[in-house]
Design a protein around this nucleic acid. Structure first.
Length: 335
DNA sequence: ATGTTCAAACTCATTACATCA
DNA sequence: AATGATGTAATGAGTTTGAAC
């Protein structure tokens, strides 16, 4: 899961926080395939215009520069700069080693879908759900939830419902995606949590959904991811808060004790702090006793440090003798 | 070089619906 | 069978961004 919370700190504390899509470094290219752009630009036929709009991203896709199909480690493309496609799940599903070169991309349904989208996307029916394209991946056979298990049946169901929607026009019907479709989208999401238009089209073709549905699914998926992470972060911060509260309570108590000690034994505690030496680099207090020299770590924000007292092992009489400078120097040198 | 406009793609909040207990 | 809870697909408003002018 790639989730994170930034609490306004620019220095990100989570390694996975930086989800900002970066430009492909182009490193590790093992197999690339250029797909010629339609080149229609804005003069292409209007995109599907569904309720809520598909924002015409297919139109954008057509005006994109040639697509580079990158079959090796995917680098998310920056927003609005769709240039690369990689579907590891395709290679996975085909049992092909990524980048092995044994992959015949021309036979990949997904690539075929891309090509089809490239070549005829503008002319084809916007409601790709009604497409005759056949699912060509071997996932799922009867593990669907409850009574719904038949992939084809479900595809048919969702497709026909989609068609119904279109026929009915403005009626808003909710189409439950099949488990297989969701799993497929999930796999894709793991690879890249945003889609460029071509990826969207390809996925839509592959799953026999409308591009808008794929787009919406990704949007909702991102929202769910974010929500989940917010919950996780909330829990984490709660624990941090509890820890700090406890620490604060402990230190307050300690401070009280020290103050009490100071009032009850004013003579010793009023000794100048110079009887103790603190290493400036490591904030360790060197305490000299009559017999031994102990070195303990003073909590940076601790009450003891504030008072210049080495609390735990400090015998009242120990402070009577000055700290031995040579030892402190040696310690500092060692540190 | 700069400002404006527009479209695409996004987030966010919300609604509507399907499913389950 | 009815119902409330839950999950999620879909929608709309608003924002950001880059390209075109």
């Amino acid at each position: 899961m790639e989730l994170a919370l930034s609490l306004g700190d620019s220095s990100k504390q989570f390694s996975f926080l930086d989800k900002t899509p970066k430009k492909s470094s182009g490193k590790g290219l093992g197999f690339c395939m250029a797909v010629g752009g339609g080149g229609g630009g804005r003069s292409l036929s209007p995109p599907e215009r569904e309720t809520g709009g598909d924002h015409g991203d297919e139109r954008r896709g057509s005006s994109d520069p040639p697509v580079q199909l990158d079959l090796l480690p995917f680098s998310p493309v920056p927003r609005r700069q769709p240039s690369q496609l990689r579907f590891s799940w395709v290679t996975d599903n085909l049992g092909t080693e990524p980048g092995s070169g044994a992959l015949d991309v021309n036979r990949l349904p997904i690539v075929a879908a891309v090509e089809e989208a490239e070549e005829g996307g503008a002319q084809s029916s916007p409601n790709s759900a009604a497409s005759s394209f056949q699912m060509d991946f071997g996932i799922g056979n009867g593990s669907s939830r409850g009574k719904r298990s038949d992939m084809e049946g479900e595809m048919e169901r969702t497709s026909s419902r989609a068609s119904d929607d279109d026929e009915n026009g403005s009626t808003r019907k909710k189409l439950r995606l099949s488990k297989e479709q969701s799993a497929f989208l999930e796999e894709s999401f793991k690879e890249h949590n945003t889609l460029n238009p071509k990826q969207k089209l390809a996925l839509a073709k592959q799953l026999n959904l409308r591009p808008r549905q794929v787009e919406v699914w990704f949007q909702n998926r991102r929202a769910r991811t974010k929500l989940k992470q917010t919950e996780v972060d909330c829990e984490y911060l709660k624990r941090c808060c509890e820890t700090l509260t406890e620490e604060n309570r402990r230190l307050q108590k300690e401070l009280q004790e020290l103050r009490a000690l100071k009032t009850s034994q004013p003579f010793y505690m009023q000794l100048p702090a110079t009887t103790l030496t603190m290493c400036p680099s490591c904030e360790r207090v060197a305490t000299t006793t009559t017999t031994t020299t102990t070195t303990t770590t003073a909590t940076a924000n601790g009450a003891g440090a504030a008072l210049g007292v080495n609390r735990p092992k400090l015998h009242p009489f120990s402070a009577l003798k000055p700290a031995r400078a040579p030892q402190a120097q040696a310690h500092q040198a060692a540190s």
